[in-house]
Write a protein that binds this DNA or RNA. Structure first.
Lengths: 196, 196
DNA sequence: TAGAGTAGAGAACGATGGTTCTCTGCGCAA
DNA sequence: TTGCGCAGAGAACCATCGTTCTCTACTCTA
C-alpha cells in the first residue's frame, strides 16, 4: 500500500490538474479517484469533503506561487529588477500549455459566492501577494501606492492572457509596470534611459 | 399569457442574476423557472439548452457593458477624461451590493475550459472592449501600446475589487491609468500639473 | 496456518442536474 | 356549444453528483 503522504500528494496534484482544467464542479470525485489511483475511501479519509480537497489544492497552489515568485525575484539583480521579475515569472507561466488563468480567481468565480471558506482562502492568497509586492516596492525605494497598481497589472495580465490566449500579454504588463516604477522613482526622462 | 419578448427578458435577467451570484452550475433550471415565473417548457422553447441560456446572458451583459461604457465616456469632457471615464464607470459598478467581479471572467473560469462557444463569447467581449479602449486612446492622441496596458488595469481592478471587496481598488486603477496616460503623452512633469 | 485488521474496488444511496412528457384547463373558430 | 390547439404546472426520466457501505482479499502476527 502506498504511503499516506504519497497518496495525499497524488490526490491533491490530480485534483489540482483536473479542477484547473475543467472547473471544480465539472470534475467528479470518481474521476479524481480514477486518475489519482487512490480509492474513494482513502480520499475521504484524507479530506472530509470535496470542499476540503479544494482548500488543499488552493494551499498547494499558494505554496507553488510563493516559491515561483521567490525564485524569480532571487534571480533578479537590482531591487527594481526584482519588482519586474514578478512579471517575468508571469510571462513564463503564460507559455505553459495548461495555462488557464489564475486558479484562485477561477475558483472564486465558481464557488466564492456560496462558500465562505473558499472565498477566504482566495482572499488571503491575494492579500499575501499584495504584501509581497509591497515589500519589493519598498526595497526598490518606491512609494507604497505603487504596489496595488502593480498588483492590478499582474491580476489583469493573468485573466487577459487566459482569455485572449496571447502570451504577449505579459510583455504589456511588464512595460506598464516599468513605466509606473520609473514614474514613482521620479525618473521622468522617459524610456531609453538605463535605470541601474 | 405573457408576451414572448417579456418572457425572454424575464428568463435572461433572472438567469443573469442567479448565475452571477452563485455560478452557473450551482443554479438549476428549476430555480430559474421558479424565480422567473416562466415554465420550463417555455424556457426550453426559447433556449434549446442551458448553454444557450448562458450565451444569451452573456450577450445581454455585453450590451449592458457597452451601454455603460458609452454613457460614462459621453459624460466626460476631454478625450483624456474619456479614457479615464472607463475607470469611473468601474468605480460606480464596484459599489453595487451584487458586485462579484466580471461575469465574463467568472463564466470563462467555470465553463471556458470545456465549452468552446462560451469561451469564444467571452473572448469576443474582451476583444471588443480592447478595441473600444484603443479607439479612445487614439482619440486622446496617445500611442497605441497604451490601450492593452489600460485594459490590464481594468481587468485587474475587476477581479481584485471582487475578491478584496475594497471599492478603493478602482481609484488605484484610475491613478495608474492616469500615470500611464501622462507618460504616453510625453507629459513628464509628474502629478500636480493640470493637463486639461 | 489461522485469524484479525485493513485497504481497495466499486456498488449503493439519496439528492439533484438538465431535459422531456403528461395532463389539465383555457381561449377561440365555426 | 363543441372541438381543437396551445400554455402552464410539475411529474417523470435518466444521468451524475458527493458520500457511504459492503465485500473481497491481502498482510502481518502468534
Amino acid at each position: 500500500m502506498i504511503d499516506e503522504e504519497t497518496a495525499r500528494e497524488r490526490v491533491v496534484s490530480t485534483a489540482d490538474r483536473l479542477f484547473y482544467a475543467h472547473g471544480v464542479q465539472a470534475v467528479g470525485m470518481d474521476t479524481v479517484r480514477t486518475e489519482a489511483g487512490v480509492s474513494l475511501k482513502r480520499i475521504y479519509a484524507l479530506f472530509p469533503s470535496k470542499d476540503d480537497l479544494v482548500l488543499a489544492v488552493l494551499r498547494r497552489r499558494t505554496h507553488q506561487w510563493d516559491t515561483g515568485v521567490t525564485g524569480a525575484v532571487s534571480r533578479a539583480g537590482t531591487p527594481r529588477d526584482q519588482v519586474l521579475a514578478v512579471f517575468d515569472f508571469l510571462a513564463e507561466w503564460f507559455l505553459e500549455d495548461a495555462f488557464r488563468g489564475c486558479a484562485f480567481i477561477n475558483v472564486f468565480g465558481e464557488l466564492g459566492g456560496d462558500s465562505d471558506r473558499i472565498a477566504a482562502a482566495v482572499r488571503e492568497q491575494k492579500a499575501s501577494f499584495q504584501r509581497r509586492v509591497t515589500e519589493l516596492v519598498h526595497e526598490a525605494g518606491c512609494p507604497g501606492h505603487l504596489a496595488p497598481q502593480l498588483v492590478l497589472l499582474a491580476e489583469g495580465a493573468q485573466t487577459t492572457a487566459a482569455i485572449s490566449r496571447d502570451p504577449g500579454t505579459a510583455a504589456h504588463a511588464r512595460a506598464a509596470a516599468d513605466t509606473l516604477i520609473r514614474h514613482a522613482l521620479g525618473d521622468f526622462q522617459g524610456p531609453g534611459v538605463s535605470g541601474t
